[in-house]
């Protein structure tokens, strides 16, 4: 691992039956860097993000995150690893419909030993940062798409992650709302130095990042 790299994938491949979705990809992300992975739908960028974030195991290759090789980790170890170091933002928000905005934000903190008041305090702090203060008790069904994604961003930050993985964070939003979400992500990176790896199929959005990695047919374009 080069000095300053928080994430490194080496010769990563992923095969589903005979279909190789990710082909011998190597990449690294430095601490505090905002990297975007851009490419057409089906080029393997979401699979690569899953491999790098510990959601999925590669068929071949090695992933090192925060100086720890997670390639051979068990499902339980990966879950604990994600809890401690990783935040996720999904295209379809993935909020729990029965929980209020603050409870959704506190979701990664539920298995951690801390009082409910502490969880609530942390969740409200993040929601206020996302300008969602007046909506903390609302259920996801009562929130707009943009508001849902703000809650999802707050949730990704709840556990003080080392890196945030964002998979098409504006994919389900109109362009104005998408821009607002991108502004939030950009601000998180610039003001708080948050390391981010974002997957998108829109080259314009990708330009927001410090570095753009292009993918095609499961391979990184040189």
């Amino acid at each position: 691992m080069n000095n300053g790299d928080i994430l490194m994938g080496v010769n990563l491949s992923k095969k589903y039956s005979n279909l190789e979705v990710v082909k011998d990809v190597s990449l690294n992300v430095k601490e505090g860097e905002f990297v975007s992975l851009v490419g057409k739908s089906g080029c393997g960028k979401t699979t690569l993000l899953s491999l790098l974030s510990g959601l999925e195991k590669p068929t071949k290759g090695q992933v090192t995150l925060n100086s720890k090789d997670i390639t051979g980790a068990t499902e339980e170890e990966l879950a604990l690893f994600r809890r401690e170091y990783v935040g996720f933002i999904f295209q379809s928000f993935n909020l729990i419909p029965t929980l209020s905005a603050w409870e959704n934000v506190a979701l990664p903190l539920f298995p951690i030993k801390m009082s409910n008041d502490q969880r609530r305090k942390r969740a409200i702090e993040l929601l206020e940062q996302m300008e969602m203060g007046p909506r903390i008790e609302h259920l996801p069904a009562a929130l707009s798409g943009g508001e849902k994604q703000r809650v999802a961003i707050a949730r990704a930050l709840a556990n003080h992650p080392k890196i945030v993985f964002a998979d098409e964070p504006t994919g389900n939003l109109d362009s104005a709302t998408g821009d607002a979400i991108m502004a939030i992500l950009s601000e998180l990176h610039k003001k708080q130095g948050m390391t981010m790896l974002m997957v998108t199929h829109e080259p314009e959005l990708a330009k927001t990042a410090d570095r753009v990695i292009r993918m095609q047919d499961g391979e990184v374009m040189k």
């Binding site: 339980e76 879950a79 809890r83 401690e84 990783v86 993935n94 729990i96 990664p108 298995p111 556990n159």
Partner: peptide
């Protein structure tokens, strides 16, 4: 299953 997927993704273990 969707909910369980979300819980596991945000760091809940099987035991949690």
């Amino acid at each position: 299953s969707r909910e369980i997927g979300i819980l596991k993704a945000v760091g809940w273990t099987n035991s949690d």
